[in-house]
């Protein structure tokens, strides 16, 4: 464990807590893409299949349980909570996210570390996580305005993967046989997807203006 990875995991946890706070406090999920949340739930379930077979550390197991439980809770809220589901931007959240699931799985069948069920689902979860934010970014482009909590949610989500890139550089420099191309390349692609959002977020923060995304 290194400081970059810990910072990454903490900002990832923070992004989920910000989202839970927004949904719980405002009883609204306007501006949040349910499709992105569903993709994240698939990512965590597919990636943590080893939850009961490989014990790495209490921290590792605890965080896996938190990520799976929180992502499923968010999807459940957005689908079944009477107050929250009413505020879902159904007509804006129209990204065909099943294509992302199919493409990621197809890629995982081709590119993986080992041809085992667990490794293929792990690679699938890595690829899917890289593109899972797309429905959310498309929804924000359509809705134009971004409320503070949603903006912070996406900012922390992008920062988490950026910290992981620093973690991979650090591990590459300090651990002799550390090679993790699938996660590295996919993580760089994922962070790049946030680049334009980060740009507009920084501009709005600098001008102290409301975050507006160009339509």
């Amino acid at each position: 464990m290194n400081i970059f990875r810990l910072a990454g995991d903490m900002t990832h946890l923070l992004s989920i807590l910000v989202l839970l706070l927004k949904i719980y406090a405002t009883k609204s999920c306007s501006g949040i893409s349910r499709k992105t949340q569903e993709l994240y739930a698939i990512v965590f379930v597919a990636r943590y299949l080893d939850l009961f077979t490989d014990f790495i550390s209490v921290y590792n197991t605890f965080m896996k349980v938190v990520f799976i439980a929180s992502s499923l809770a968010i999807v459940w809220c957005m689908r079944f909570h009477p107050m929250v589901r009413r505020s879902y931007d159904r007509e804006l959240d129209t990204f065909r996210h099943y294509f992302l699931v199919g493409a990621s799985f197809a890629l995982a069948l081709i590119l993986h570390e080992k041809f085992t069920v667990q490794e293929i689902f792990w690679a699938f979860s890595i690829y899917l996580e890289a593109v899972a934010i797309l429905p959310q970014l498309v929804l924000l482009q359509r809705s134009g305005n971004v409320d503070n909590l949603t903006g912070q949610y996406i900012f922390f989500l992008g920062a988490y993967r950026a910290f992981y890139i620093l973690n991979w550089i650090y591990r590459y420099l300090t651990e002799p046989h550390f090679t993790r191309w699938i996660a590295c390349v996919s993580g760089v692609v994922q962070t790049a997807l946030y680049a334009d959002f980060f740009y507009y977020y920084f501009i709005s923060w600098k001008n102290n203006s409301k975050l507006k995304l160009p339509a």
């Binding site: 080893d50 790495i56 973690n167």
Partner: peptide, 10 residues
């Protein structure tokens, strides 16, 4: 050991 350490990241 290599196998288990492999997915030590979240």
């Amino acid at each position: 050991l290599e196998e288990i350490l492999y997915h030590d990241e979240l």
